[in-house]
Design a protein around this nucleic acid. Structure first.
Length: 260
DNA sequence: ATACCTCCCTGTGGGC
DNA sequence: TGCCCACAGGGAGGTA
């Protein structure tokens, strides 16, 4: 699930339910989601501390706890952060439950446990965790974006997917952006004309804006995403049968008529 | 720099 | 019905 818009939604949950509140109890129900930290250490640092203002970079959510340390979440394919009341029944995939003052709970729910949560002991550790990421897709300036594409030999979709190039775009967003920008995903990034690269940038902004409002890539019928799971998917713009293949190990859907 | 492979996890849906 | 495989909106690490 989680790409930039989803994580932005989790940030909002944390901001409205967690920020300024003290963590009374940390319950690690499945240590399989802990990355580089033990349940014991997590409890030590987090219990009794207050959540600060959360921030997001790409698909990472950084949640300061107390003075210095921070929880750094990566949601993988199936992770989510939900707010619940203490008496709400647990979901079988609730891996970590944080009980706040006032009995509100923040629950880290994740079926597949492909990623998880790290504990940064201080600001330097947070920076190290973000160090490998490119600029956030919501904040990257157009000239930088164009330069990025111009410098890469690989497929444009691969560049957009590469978190060290641009942070935050996942498989669905990339397909949606390239469909909207009318560029074939397999095109070499540096071979795009100026106008094509600009179209991709504009499409990225539009798609991200709308997705952020929905806290997901909305499966609208006017979008490519609303059709990719149909039995015989067709392009919502021109009605042509959509093509589908596998590039860099990920399913890729595009319109052979609209995209060049 | 890039393409490809395997692995990390769990569940689902299709084919036999 | 059971079994096995491919696949899924994530990424890391290794190889050529």
């Amino acid at each position: 699930m989680p790409e930039l818009p989803d994580v932005e939604g989790f940030r909002a949950v944390l901001d409205s339910c967690g920020r300024g509140h003290r963590v009374r109890r940390v319950e690690v129900r499945d240590a399989g989601v802990l990355r580089g930290v033990t349940a014991r250490r997590l409890r030590q640092v987090v219990e009794g501390s207050r959540f600060g203002r959360p921030r997001r970079h790409g698909k990472l959510l950084v949640a300061p706890v107390g003075e210095g340390p921070a929880l750094v979440w990566h949601f993988g394919m199936t992770g989510e952060l939900v707010s619940a009341a203490a008496q709400d029944p647990l979901d079988r995939y609730d891996r970590i439950v944080l009980t706040l003052d006032g009995e509100r709970q923040l629950r880290y729910r994740d079926q597949r446990k492909l990623q998880g949560v790290q504990l940064a002991e201080g600001p330097e550790a947070v920076e190290r965790m973000l160090a490998g990421l490119g600029p956030d897709a919501l904040g990257v300036a157009r000239p930088d974006f164009l330069a990025l594409l111009a410098g890469r030999r690989g497929a444009v979709k691969g560049v957009l997917m590469d978190q060290s190039a641009i942070a935050g775009l996942g498989n669905l967003l990339c397909d949606e952006i390239l469909w909207r920008g009318r560029v074939v995903p397999a095109r070499r990034a540096r071979d795009l004309g100026e106008d094509e690269a600009r179209r991709v940038f504009t499409a990225m902004r539009r798609v991200l804006d709308a997705s952020r409002r929905a806290a997901r890539v909305p499966p609208r019928r006017t979008w490519l995403t609303g059709h990719r799971d149909d039995p015989d998917p067709t392009c919502p713009r021109c009605g042509t049968a959509l093509r589908s293949d596998r590039t860099s190990g990920r399913r890729t859907v595009w319109c052979p008529r609209c995209q060049h």
